[in-house]
């Protein structure tokens, strides 16, 4: 906020001139960067395809309708695999995330100098790489199939779960821990009585939340050969079997909606 004097009259402005100029300059630079970026995309695009897009979309849409309902018979098994990848992946991730979280939380870490950085490194590297990339890698190592997808999902989830969990651990009420310590309880007993009960609600919430995300992610893992319904999607896309593609997309959408509903219900019941 500033007041300047013009022709002997005081004028109120929200910002003084320098700040205003800086803001304009930032906008200018921002716009220039955006235009440059846009040009990059534009150069890499065949615009003829773009203008043709409505026709192609209508064409694909026409072919995809109606979905080939009879294909559903072949989808039950991959759907079951997808569910298993998501659920078991979440369970495995949680089992590994708990120790990592305890090592990463400032108030429970055995050593803030050595153990904590390692735990944080595990969390960061697991979090910054998408599960599809993990799957890509694991398919090369473990061979295509559900197992690679399962491991990919759990590796990706460790960081996410451990991060939320260690934040929950750092927020606990220390006086309850102190009280249990004062009774002469051992380190593990303090953990079981003083800390665990306090983080249980957070733990349950994180588990359900991540399960929901994992179900979404495991629907596409098949695209790189890591099992689940994505495998059928990839096959149908490769053979341009659009009625099957539309059915699969419909099933995926339905699965996502159901999982969201389930996780909302469970979360409501816990909290």
């Amino acid at each position: 906020m500033a007041i300047s004097t013009l022709d002997g009259q005081k004028i109120w402005q929200r910002r003084d001139r320098d700040v205003q100029l800086k803001i304009w300059a930032m906008w200018l630079v921002g716009t220039a960067i955006f235009m440059w970026c846009w040009q990059q995309i534009s150069e890499a695009t065949t615009w003829a395809f773009f203008w043709d897009a409505p026709r192609i979309a209508a064409d694909i849409g026409g072919r995809a309708m109606p979905p080939r309902w009879s294909y559903m018979d072949k989808l039950w098994s991959p759907l079951w695999d997808t569910l298993n990848i998501a659920t078991l992946g979440t369970v495995m991730a949680l089992m590994m995330a708990v120790p990592v979280a305890f090592m990463a939380a400032r108030n429970t870490t055995p050593s803030a100098l050595f153990v904590r950085p390692i735990a944080l490194l595990i969390i960061v590297s697991s979090r910054s790489i998408n599960s599809l990339i993990w799957a890509l890698l694991l398919v090369k190592i473990l061979g295509p199939g559900v197992f690679a997808g399962l491991i990919a999902i759990s590796i990706r989830s460790i960081g996410f779960c451990a991060k939320l969990l260690y934040e929950a651990i750092e927020e606990i009420d220390e006086s309850q821990v102190e009280a249990i310590t004062a009774t002469g309880a051992s380190r593990w007993q303090v953990m079981a009585y003083g800390i665990v009960p306090q983080i249980m609600p957070a733990f349950a919430g994180i588990a359900v939340f991540r399960w929901d995300i994992n179900l979404r992610e495991s629907t596409v893992l098949g695209l790189v050969g890591a099992g689940g319904i994505g495998l059928q999607l990839q096959g149908s896309l490769n053979t341009l079997a659009w009625p099957q593609v539309s059915l699969i997309l419909l099933v995926i959408l339905l699965a996502v909606v159901v999982s969201e509903w389930v996780s909302a219900k469970v979360r409501g019941a816990i909290i």
Binding site: I41, T46, E217, T219, V220, L253
Partner: peptide, 20 residues
């Protein structure tokens, strides 16, 4: 509700390969 990858597949089919 739509996964990014699924959307990308459809849009690649419609607009062709590339960053667009």
């Amino acid at each position: 509700a739509l996964n990014e990858i699924v959307v990308a597949i459809l849009l690649v089919a419609i607009f062709g390969f590339g960053p667009l």
